[in-house]
Design a protein around this nucleic acid. Sequence first.
DNA 1: AATTATTTAAAACAACCGTTTAATATAATC
DNA 2: GATTATATTAAACGGTTGTTTTAAATAATT
Lengths: 217, 217
Amino acid sequence: MTQSAAIEPAFDRLLQVAVEVFAECGFREATVREICSKAHVNVASVNYYFRSKEALYTQALAFAFQEANRLYPHDAALDNGLPPEQRLALFINNFLHKLLDDSHLGLHSKLIAREIADPTKALDEIIETAITPQFNLLQEIIQQILGAQADKVIVQRCLLSIFGQCLMFKHSRSIIDRLYPELIVNDSATQASAEHITRFSLAALTRFSQQKERLIP
Amino acid sequence: MTQSAAIEPAFDRLLQVAVEVFAECGFREATVREICSKAHVNVASVNYYFRSKEALYTQALAFAFQEANRLYPHDAALDNGLPPEQRLALFINNFLHKLLDDSHLGLHSKLIAREIADPTKALDEIIETAITPQFNLLQEIIQQILGAQADKVIVQRCLLSIFGQCLMFKHSRSIIDRLYPELIVNDSATQASAEHITRFSLAALTRFSQQKERLIP
DNA sequence: AATTATTTAAAACAACCGTTTAATATAATC
DNA sequence: GATTATATTAAACGGTTGTTTTAAATAATT
């Protein structure tokens, strides 16, 4: 960090630090001065290189996405040839790890989670760029499990059920950390969580596909 | 409001408005000046009646809890005599309505959700006062469905699965509003959501209780 | 009715915010 | 090597924040 601080140009340092600080504090709480201080540049640099704090935020978001897509390549769940149950397991496992990874790219999901909980103007772009693709992929998998004739609203609701289980670990992490800390300590705990969510959801989905004619909508 | 502003003493007005504004903006984003303006009191009143902005926040939280418990009496799900499946349905329905009610006491859950997503010092008290009781109740219901010999960790995970599905509508509401707005428009949509979550979870739970000996932990 | 305590009010406080300015240092170009 | 263009700096700007001060108004008590 200290070496790269000397080598990398100020623009790049600013962008990297911005991702960290915005993820940590959120847009409104983060201060230009803190970002500049940690990037070892003058306070005026934000307005020199980027137009404003808000413009820096937007670019930091875009940069974080691009980094995350580079480090976390697209899901193996994309493979259409695999059985849908396995695709679901892969999807949930990948998504949950992406959410709970505290290292480099946990910043990415932190930024998104912040935007969702407390939206700024950038939310619409995030939905298009980062959320809709994930939604579409999971929707396709669920559709495959429930069968093509499944009601569209039911598919949507099942999708929310699965995402909700995963996001619980992100949005309510402060609670889980205190009440069930052992569920979140390390990588294998995360994997166990992913397996539970998969089992829980698959049990529900297969039930749904069996009894769908008896449903009272 | 205008009448009560003249009748109710400044202290009470301040507390009520504080609940609204803190729920709307969060602790850090909310300003003393806005609260005082909406309560029709002088800026100095916050530091006169309460010691500081932070003390006002703490008291506003406590006040909101007490109001919510008064307006939303404890779950019918508490009734031990009912079959556990019905208790689960009652619990989810009540919890989801509490979460999505935009009127008076939606403020209560808004405040809690804010605290969870972006904790202040007050979180510990919230967990004790508001969250643990709900967790314990749901835990008891799940235990009843899975059977007394069910693994404790599995019970915990199922609990998170169910809470996660409910909280999805709270924490990711900004997304649902944009992608599936019809799921959240009114009271009957909320009820339909509660019914789905109940059906989804019951399907998974009954499956779990059937195949528990075949589980690979 | 006089005196004490309590509540309201306007103004100012120091600290911090994002942004701008104006001057200097560095690099690139001719 | 002189002259542009680019990058960096320190300082200040206007605005907002939570909090404090000081004084006036109101209520309560004797």
